[in-house]
Amino acid sequence: MVNTSVNLCGVSLKNPIIPASGTFGFGHEFADVYDLNCLGGISVKGTTAVERFGNETPRIAEAPSGLLNSVGLQNPGIDTVLGYELPRLRDSYGGAIIANISGFSIDEYVSTCEKADKSKNVDIIEVNISCPNVHNGGMSFGTTASGAAEVTREVKKVCKKPVFMKLSPNVTDIAAIARACEGAGADGISLINTLLAMRIDIRRRRPVLNNVTGGLSGPAIFPVAVRMVWQVYENVGIPIMGLGGVSTADDVIEMMLAGATAVQVGAANLRDPFACKKIADELPALMEKLGVDDINDIIGGAHNG
């Protein structure tokens, strides 16, 4: 029997597989698709202080080996998420629940994270400073080291639970931003969010997305994500949740060799609702094939020698 369990800042996960925020609803929508308890954690839909519709449709476009979305943080607001969505998820799921929090000001990040921190149904707080689909917020904090550090510092003042900062790939120096988060007290780093992208309808001669631009996800961005996880691992000592185009158990191993302690699966859930379960089912056999007894032995394994 191989060991697949990993530990994120004191939170034990039965395996490193976590559906990524925005691709798995609030989790309970999948409870009748398969038993959610095969998952190490669940990162729920990005949440803001108050309810948001998000951007106008169309907000989905296809890409070679992936898709663009410009949903723009549709969510029912933190109070509904904590009062209704997460208790409903907890009914059918005993693993780690990761609240994913976005904001438009430092104050909003702080007050929303503080509420999430007090919820018994939240195990880890993932602070999204990287949404490419909302203006005057989200990504603007995540594209400078000083902005990322400021959000981290203020959120950490009100949170007792582990805080992971979710970073944008749309930057010139990811390592500097990760270091700034670590320096400001972050417990961990999640990366990458989506890559800013665009499609044009050649018949209508107009952008496909109503929002003009959107975030690219899926296998198309996997090599970019591996590179950035690698770079961040070289520069920080805190654990990393790696994500971006992960679709198979092989991808999970690759992401962990680059430096991830846990791995989130995003777009793959939209193409195949059983994606995370299949990956979790396949991981032990793949480890045996690769001669890995304990998954923790391979974290950052490609950096050795």
Binding site: G22, T23, F24, G25, E29, F30, K45, F53, G54, T57, P58, R59, I60, A61, L67, N69, V71, Q74, N269, L270, R271, P273
Partner: peptide, 21 residues
């Protein structure tokens, strides 16, 4: 509507109704 998943996970195809999104 243009859909991402088709089964409710991605909220790509949300519309407004008199009874909410």
């Amino acid at each position: 509507e243009r859909m991402g998943c088709g089964f409710g996970a991605c909220v790509g195809c949300t519309c407004r109704t008199k009874y909410g999104n």
